[in-house]
Structure formats: C-alpha cells, structure tokens
C-alpha cells in the first residue's frame, strides 16, 4: 500500500485540508448550538403541546447522534467512511427486508448481504471494474438463489424484491462509499449529505409558506408543488456554490454544469423521498422502524440519499472522474 493510499484511508490529520470541509463542519456546529434556542422560541411562540415539544427535542437529540455518526467516519479517513456506508447499506436493507417480508426468504437475503459486502470490498480496494460487475452478477445470483426452494409460486416476487433491495441499498448507496476513493472525498460527501438533508428541510418550510397545490396527494399528502419548487430554488444555488469550490478549476466548474448538478441533487433527492413514501404506503406503514427517536427508522431519515448517490457519482464521473490518480486495486492488485 502506497503512502498516499494509507494517508487517504486512515489519515485523520488531513481532515481539515479543504476549506469546504471546515466551513461545513463549522456550519453544522453553529446549527447545533442555535437549534435549542430556536426550538425554545418556536415552542413558546406557538404554545406547542408537550407532545410536540418532546418530539422536537427527540429529533434534536437524535440529530446530534446522527451528525456524529456521519462526521466522525468522514473526517477520520476513507476506510472508516466506506465502513460507515456499508453499515448504512446493511441497516437500510434490514429495514426494507423486514417491512416487505423479504427477510423470510433466507437465501435471497443472504445473497443481498454478501453482495453488499463485496460492494464494500470493491470500494475499499478502489477496484472500479469489480464495483461495476457486481450489479449484474449479484442479480444473476439472486435469480439463481430464488430457485433453491424449488417453489415456482412466488418466484417473481421474492427475486424482484431481492433485486430491488440490492439495487437500492447495495448498488446505489454503495456509490457513496466508492466516492471515498477520491483524494478530496471529504468535502464531496459532506456537501452531498448536507445538501440532501437541507433539501428536505427546504421542501418542508417552503411547503408551509407557499404550498397550496398538492403535489402527489396519493403518495404523500403533505407534499406540495410550492414545497418542491422552493426546495429546488434554494438547494440548487447553495450546492452549486459549494461544488464550485470543491471542483475548482476542473471541467465541471462552469456555471451551467454546476447548476445542473445542483438541480440533480434537489430533484433526485425529492424522488428518493417519494420512493420510500410509495413503498410505505403500499405496505400500509407510517414508519419503516422505531430505531431513531423522533425520526422513525434509518430509511425514514436517509431515503433522499439513496437515489442521489449514483446520480451525482455518474454526473461527476462523466465530466471529471472519481479517484483520478489514486492507486487502484489496493489489496487485490
């Protein structure tokens, strides 16, 4: 393993090399310090009930934990980042499998979990060709594993659910881990996660302010056209400005391309949210689990990130590329 690779994987001393990382970490810190004041003011002014107050404080406390689970691995090194993404993938798949009932199909679940482990290895190894190959290969394995019980009844269902599970939580979310192979992965990941979470908040606030016309009342009755457009209008410039500093002087650094990337983050993020709403509504559930107080399950919190990861990855990969100049096949080469 070369010195450069070791520094990228474990070099926490480089945590604040990039200005964008410093700014985003500081913003997060300030938000966490200001939030209690804001919650106090809002609950006093609105004369909120004690239930509503408790929910807000639960959410706040959970956000502190979530922020630590996100920030610490990203700052600590690419190795920890990829492991954190693998954990996120596994927990997300677990919730998905439990709410759809796919967890009762042991063989298929096992194949999906093995697929997630291989994706994690491909990301750690910086082996792009394996990373790409794993999608069709795992799908083939799921289709084969579905044959094992020798029961054609329900074959399409269990294989279909397995493939969707791997596509969303193994392959799509795996792109987030693969991004850590870029030398400058810290600001990239922080910016994406920040923008996606802010996008949710913007949609919520704008929906309250200008939301009149319902967006998709059957899928998610609280979403409005105003909220969706407002989120695009606010997230796009913020992301574009951040991305300008992250990809400074590269082929991506033109106003049109940066705005394009911002729109992708905002629009695809909202689609991810709607996707999970559809899954839950189809099953007749409100939350995917009761794991994070005030939020629900892991999926309820990170739904918007799932589709954004591959979209941003391939957009950036088209113009600039990821992991340019980094040694490939670190362990297997």
């Amino acid at each position: 393993m070369s010195q450069v690779t070791r520094e990228r994987l474990f070099g926490f001393r480089h945590a604040f090399d990039d200005r964008v990382t410093v700014v985003l970490t500081l913003v997060a810190l300030v938000l966490f310090l200001l939030a209690p004041v804001l919650i106090l003011v809002v609950t006093r002014a609105a004369k909120s009930t004690s239930d509503k107050k408790k929910e807000l404080w639960d959410r706040y406390r959970s956000w502190i934990w979530l922020a630590l689970f996100i920030l610490i691995p990203i700052l600590a090194g690419a190795f920890w980042t990829i492991l954190a993404v693998a954990t996120l993938s596994s927990l997300s798949y677990r919730e998905y499998a439990r709410i759809t009932g796919l967890f009762r199909e042991r063989t298929i679940s096992l194949i999906v979990v093995i697929g997630i482990l291989f994706i994690t290895f491909a990301a750690l190894d910086n082996w792009y060709r394996l990373f790409v190959a794993l999608f069709p290969l795992t799908v083939a394995l799921i289709a084969t594993g579905g044959l094992i019980p020798d029961q054609p009844k329900g074959y399409i269902q269990r294989v279909g659910l397995g493939v969707l599970g791997f596509a969303l939580f193994g392959s799509a979310l795996g792109h987030l881990g693969y991004m850590a192979n870029d030398w400058n992965y810290r600001p990239i990941l922080l910016l994406i996660i920040f923008a996606v979470e802010l996008n949710d908040i913007f949609a919520y606030i704008c929906g309250h302010l200008f939301g009149h016309r319902k967006f998709v009342p059957n899928t998610s009755p609280n979403k409005t056209v105003g909220g969706a457009l407002g989120a695009i209008a606010l997230t796009t410039p913020l992301f574009a400005i951040g991305a300008h500093f992250v990809w400074f002087g590269t082929a991506l650094d033109t106003p049109v391309r940066l705005v394009g990337l911002g729109i992708i983050v905002s629009v695809v993020g909202q689609f991810g949210d709607l996707m999970l709403s559809s899954i839950k509504r189809d099953l007749g559930l409100k939350d995917t689990a009761k794991l994070i107080p005030g939020h629900g399950g892991i999926l309820d919190r990170f739904d918007s990130l799932i589709l954004v990861a591959p979209a941003v990855f391939h957009y950036v990969n088209y113009f600039v590329g990821f992991a340019v100049g980094q040694p490939q096949q670190i362990f297997s080469g």
Binding site: R98, I99, T100, G101, F103, L283, L285, K290
Partner: peptide, 9 residues
Amino acid sequence: LQPARDTGL
C-alpha cells in the same frame, strides 16, 4: 407482502 410482526417496536 407481510411486514415482520414486530414492525413498529
């Protein structure tokens, strides 16, 4: 589709 019986705990 039958979610796990313990969903929501």
